[in-house]
């Protein structure tokens, strides 16, 4: 038997595999395909203080080894989440965490306050990195001062695990990571999507209604891996790695780079069973390499 259990501070994950917000709905969408209790955790769809319609269609463009999206945080708001969705998903036998987004500090604070009251939600992922919301979102995550402010204010009201999701659209991601650690973040997750765009040469039109959007999929994996490695060396809190993970081999690479846990995102669209396959694949890797505890692999990249 191998030990797959990892800890994000006090939050225990039965294994390091989580699913990324915005790619996994509320978990319900995947219940036909997998047993959710086999996952370390799920991050549900980005939730804002108030209802958001999101951006107009078209919101997605396939790109080489990846895709661009510009969904724009479509969701029904935190009250709807607490009243309608939470009762349906609260008994999942995995860590159900809510991705909290907003363009104003006070909105993030109010959303976090309401979610703090939900007994079966052990943590939130504060999204300071959405590239698809006009008024902000990513703006929080691209300067140390604004990242510090939103994390400081949310920390005052949110008592459980506070994970902060970082934007890769910055010059030095380690300075942002250190800034949010300094304000009491319990962990950081990275990376959110990379800002990109696509044009149809025939029609000369952009492929997204918003012109620019967030790039995800294997195309971003080397960038994500580099950033996870840099951040893991810069902070003392756990790092959750994501960006283009398609299989167990990719997941192991992030763990070797210093990630305590990983999230699977875009791959869920192509294979809705991929998350549990990654759990199995990590086990097989450990057996093959005679590693009995997954924690021995965290940051175990061999640089010699």
């Amino acid at each position: 038997m191998v030990n797959l259990e990892v800890k994000l501070k006090d939050l225990v994950l039965k294994n390091p595999v989580m699913t990324a917000s915005g790619t996994f709905g509320f978990g319900e969408e995947f219940a036909d395909f997998i047993d959710l209790s086999q996952l370390g955790g799920i991050l549900v769809k980005g939730t804002t203080r108030y209802h958001r319609e999101g951006n107009p269609y078209p919101r997605m463009a396939e790109t080489p080894s990846g895709m661009l999206n510009a969904v724009g945080l479509q969701n029904k708001g935190v009250e709807n989440f607490c009243n309608d969705i939470y009762p349906r998903i609260k008994d999942y036998k995995t860590n159900v965490m809510v991705n909290v987004s907003g363009s104003l500090v006070e909105d993030c604070v109010e959303t976090a306050t309401m979610i703090n009251e939900l007994d079966h939600i052990p943590g939130i992922e504060l999204n300071i990195s959405c590239p698809n919301v006009k008024e902000g979102g990513m703006a929080f995550g691209t300067s140390c001062a604004s990242a510090e402010e939103v994390v400081r204010e949310v920390r005052k009201v949110y008592k459980k695990h506070l994970m902060v999701k970082l934007s890769p659209n910055v010059t030095d991601i380690t300075s942002i990571a250190k800034a949010v650690e300094g304000q009491g973040a319990d962990s950081v997750s990275l990376i959110n999507t990379l800002l990109g765009m696509a044009i149809d040469a025939e029609t000369r039109k952009p492929l997204l209604s918003t012109v620019t959007g967030g790039l995800s999929g294997p195309a971003v994996k080397p960038v994500a891996l580099r950033m996870v490695w840099q951040v893991a060396q810069a902070v003392n809190i756990p790092v959750v790695g994501l960006g283009g993970i398609m299989n167990a081999k990719d997941a192991i690479e992030f763990i070797l780079a210093g990630a305590t846990a990983i999230q699977i995102g875009t791959a869920n669209f192509i294979d809705p069973q991929v998350s549990v396959k990654v759990v199995e694949g990590i086990k097989e890797y450990m057996i093959r390499h005679q590693v009995s505890d997954i924690n021995d692999l965290i940051g175990a990249i061999n640089l010699k």
Binding site: G22, T23, E29, E53, G54, Y57, R59, P272
Partner: peptide, 22 residues
């Protein structure tokens, strides 16, 4: 026939604008 990524309601990419919203 909107373009979509997942096909089962997870990605929210294929929306159409209806009288009740996207």
């Amino acid at each position: 026939e909107n373009t979509m990524a997942c096909g089962f309601g997870a990605c929210l990419c294929c929306v159409t604008d209806t009288k009740e919203g996207n």
